[in-house]
């Protein structure tokens, strides 16, 4: 039971990351400010690294 719960929580966590990745990319596309675009890309890197299970 414990292991199943842990697995479900992990899946939800990765789903949350994927959702945030989509939001960050959406905001990056929408903004007109180039400085914000750079910030969005910097923020995106750790989320993608985790989503692709690299770090």
């Amino acid at each position: 039971m414990n292991a199943i719960l842990t697995e479900i929580i992990s899946i939800l966590y990765y789903a949350l990351i994927a959702f945030l990745v989509v939001l960050i990319i959406y905001n990056m596309i929408k903004t007109k400010d180039w400085k914000k675009e750079i910030v969005y890309v910097i923020i995106l890197i750790p989320f993608l690294l985790r989503l692709f299970m690299l770090k």
């Binding site: 596309i29 180039w34 675009e37």
Partner: peptide, 8 residues
């Protein structure tokens, strides 16, 4: 945006 995205 493409250039910034590619750099990232």
């Amino acid at each position: 945006k493409s250039l910034i995205g590619v750099a990232g």
